[in-house]
Amino acid sequence: MAHASGKSAGRSSFGKWAVHIAALLFVIVWTIPTLGILVTSLRDKDQIVGSGWWASFFSSTQVQQVRLAGPDKQVEKDGKFVIEGNVFENPGGTQVSAFGARAQEPTKFEVGTVADLGDGETLQINADGSYVQSSIKKFEGSRGQRVYFSSTVPPRFTTENYGNVLTSEGVGRSFLNSLTVTIPATIIPIMIAAFAAYALAWMRFPGRALLIAVIIGLLVVPLQMALIPLLEMYNGVGNLFGVPSKTYLGIWLAHTGFGLPFAIYLLRSYIAGLPREIMESARIDGASDFEIFMKIVLPLSFPVLASFAIFQFLWVWNDLLVAMVFLGTGANELVLTGKLNALLGSRGGDWDILTTSAFITIILPLIVFFSLQRYFVRGLLAGSVKGG
């Protein structure tokens, strides 16, 4: 018996460690991309193109091309024509390590070397970026010599990317629009679902089982399939009563409709698992169903309410499709996701704007999640394993 007990304890300890390691791996897998977005959004625009975010904390070597000053800057010294300048627009910090005059050999000459370019022309580029170009003949043409050089660039972080995005016209308005949509669209389905879940869990009435089956069936209905019929129905009712089609009321009702099946299913599973003795004692004391719901069920159901609030807030905040259909795409109606999408336009390669916009959109959801996260797992697990 002792031997069997020891083996069981060993298996239990191994299983506990396996769960902890798996959870840690999931945390790492999800955290690394978020860290990459944050670091990239704070990097200099030119460095984003040159290297990955993981290399942003170390100096990097980059090959660049630049045109030297034109012939109009030449001066005559000791019988030669000389052009002087610096390959860096803002010298300081960055060091040149090698240079060349051809794209095929961008690092042919060591820094400080006087390179022979042919026809009596020489070029010397120093580590600080200063250069001296000389020729026995007068420089001609309208543009300067194109040269290539490799440079050691120190890491540079800046908040300029956030300034560019946040100060763009309409971003502040779209942020308020997102809040106006998200907060009511989170609270309304919770209020309706809580009453419905209590009725389906503890009240007996005809058609109760059919309603539960319909709710479970609605969980698998794709949003895209129901979106257009729902919009046509809403517009029809709006035309009948003279209500404009593009209003906040419409998008609140849409998000409520899409969120209710999951909310009722989750809350009913949790509420059905509450101790029956508490409900019976309250009824013996003369409490009505409404009093039981308000004074007993709601306080005990706060963890599952918080869990659903996180889900619904994240879904509505990150939504673009429903907002564009029910609210519109005008300058005063765009939500934050729509405005940032419009800000990007066709500039899909501007990683500074992409990463900064992405991180701006997740700041508020992260605040909401960490504020309610202590209820999240408890409410979600209880709602999934309790009840019938």
Results as ranks from 00 to 15, higher is better:
Ala2Met: 13
Ala4Glu: 12
Gly6Phe: 06
Ala9Tyr: 09
Ala18Tyr: 04
Val19Asp: 13
His20Leu: 13
Val27Ile: 15
Val27Trp: 14
Ile28Ser: 12
Asp44Leu: 08
Phe58Met: 11
Ser60Met: 14
Gln64Pro: 02
Arg67Lys: 15
Ala69Ile: 10
Lys73Asp: 11
Lys77His: 14
Gly79Ser: 07
Pro91Ile: 05
Pro91Asp: 09
Gly93Glu: 08
Gly93His: 12
Ser97Phe: 14
Ala101Pro: 07
Glu105Trp: 13
Glu110Ile: 11
Glu110Gly: 15
Val111Ser: 04
Val111Met: 08
Val111Gly: 08
Val114Gln: 10
Gly118Arg: 06
Val132Tyr: 07
Lys137Met: 06
Glu140Ala: 12
Gly141Tyr: 03
Gly144Tyr: 02
Val147Ile: 15
Thr158Gln: 06
Thr159Ile: 15
Leu176Pro: 02
Asn177Ile: 04
Asn177Asp: 07
Val181Asp: 03
Thr186Glu: 00
Met191Phe: 10
Ala196Trp: 11
Tyr198Ile: 04
Ala199Met: 15
Met203Phe: 12
Gly207Tyr: 07
Arg208Ala: 06
Ile212Ser: 13
Ala226Met: 11
Glu232Ala: 05
Tyr234Cys: 01
Tyr234Ile: 06
Gly242His: 13
Lys246Ala: 08
His255Glu: 05
Gly257Glu: 00
Leu267Phe: 01
Arg268Ala: 10
Tyr270Trp: 01
Met279Asp: 15
Ala282Ser: 15
Gly286Asp: 06
Ser288Gln: 08
Asp289Ile: 09
Phe290Trp: 15
Glu291Lys: 15
Phe302Asp: 01
Leu305Trp: 01
Leu305Asp: 03
Ala306Leu: 08
Ser307Trp: 02
Ala309Ser: 12
Trp315Gln: 10
Trp317Phe: 10
Phe326Arg: 00
Gly328Val: 10
Asn332Gln: 08
Glu333Pro: 04
Glu333Gln: 13
Leu334Arg: 06
Leu344Thr: 09
Thr355Lys: 03
Phe359Cys: 00
Ile360His: 04
Ile367Thr: 05
Phe369Leu: 14
Gln373Tyr: 14
Val377His: 07
Ala382Ser: 14
